[in-house]
């Protein structure tokens, strides 16, 4: 057990450090996030001035929602990406064979890799936009100090849920020569259904209820709501429980999918 924890920590730390070697890319990414957030925040402000209290958020909360969601965007890979890019390249080049030679759980390997990456990106590509937003637009920071660790936990679960979805998409690479089409499709679905573009409470009633029950809601909407302290006391645990539930279900599905895929093991090229 201790050995396994040490191994996965080493993998995650390696991924963290690998991402940290590309400083210029990280810096320009953080700037991009901030610029987009400025544009979106201005749009949201105009919208909420016209329709105060829209979707249950006041203008300040709506703007904060933008900053927090932009801070999460890359870390939770709301567009897809992260480990997915790497895995897809390895499918195409046949390097995936090398991964299979390792005495390590395939799914665990990539989850650890993705968590390492997400950790680094939350720090830099999350921290910078959040700081810009707080200083420039005056974001609503949590009142209770307990909210910060809850938010971090929620962000962690968001990454695991997002990993679960992306892992299933990537597994299709074992059957399809290229998972790119499916990936683009789920990327767009994720953009809408995660609450990245608009909070899900703004969706029409029926569609909104469906969207809030789907796993994508756990990726952006829920951590943002935790940050905004939309729910109190045990209700917060309910939110985290929703995330944990989807995380487990998706991880389990990934497990089954992986078993089917390994049974099929056809490695392209090589």
């Amino acid at each position: 057990m201790r050995q396994a924890v040490g191994l996965y920590l080493t993998i995650a730390r390696g991924a963290f450090r690998r991402y940290s070697t590309y400083r210029m890319a990280t810096f320009s990414g953080a700037v991009t996030n901030s610029v987009f957030a400025v544009i979106l925040a201005a749009t949201f402000l105009a919208l909420w001035r016209a329709r105060p209290g829209l979707g249950g958020y006041d203008a300040r909360a709506a703007v904060t929602y933008i900053w927090v969601s932009q801070a999460l965007l890359v870390s939770v890979a709301a567009w897809g990406g992260g480990f997915q890019d790497e895995l897809q390249t390895r499918f195409r080049s046949g390097d995936i064979a090398v991964d299979l030679y390792r005495p390590v759980d395939f799914q665990g390997w990539w989850l650890a890799t993705d968590l390492g990456r997400a950790g680094f990106q939350l720090l830099v590509r999350g921290g910078v936009p959040l700081a810009v937003g707080a200083l420039w637009f005056g974001a609503r920071l949590p009142r209770s100090p307990l909210t910060w660790p809850l938010f971090l936990l929620s962000a962690l679960l968001a990454v695991v849920v997002s990993f679960g979805v992306r892992f299933l998409v990537s597994l299709s690479g074992f059957w399809l020569h290229d998972a790119e089409g499916l990936r683009a499709l789920t990327g767009v679905a994720s953009m809408f259904l995660s609450g990245m573009l608009l909070p899900l409470t703004l969706f029409p009633a029926g569609a909104g209820a469906v969207a809030r029950a789907l796993p994508w809601a756990a990726i952006v909407q829920l951590p943002c709501d935790v940050f905004l302290e939309r729910r109190h006391g045990l209700a917060v645990l309910g939110e985290l429980g929703f995330q944990l539930g989807w995380a487990l279900v998706l991880f389990g599905l990934g497990r089954v999918g992986l078993r089917l895929a390994t049974r099929k093991v056809v490695v392209q090229g090589g």
């Binding site: 390696g14 450090r17 690998r18 070697t21 590309y22 080049s93 046949g94 390097d95 064979a97 090398v98 030679y101 390792r102």
Partner: peptide, 15 residues
């Protein structure tokens, strides 16, 4: 077992 491919690498590229 140990496996080495001349055209592939098991090493972390960036580290």
């Amino acid at each position: 077992i140990g496996v080495v491919f001349g055209q592939r690498t098991t090493l972390w590229w960036d580290l």
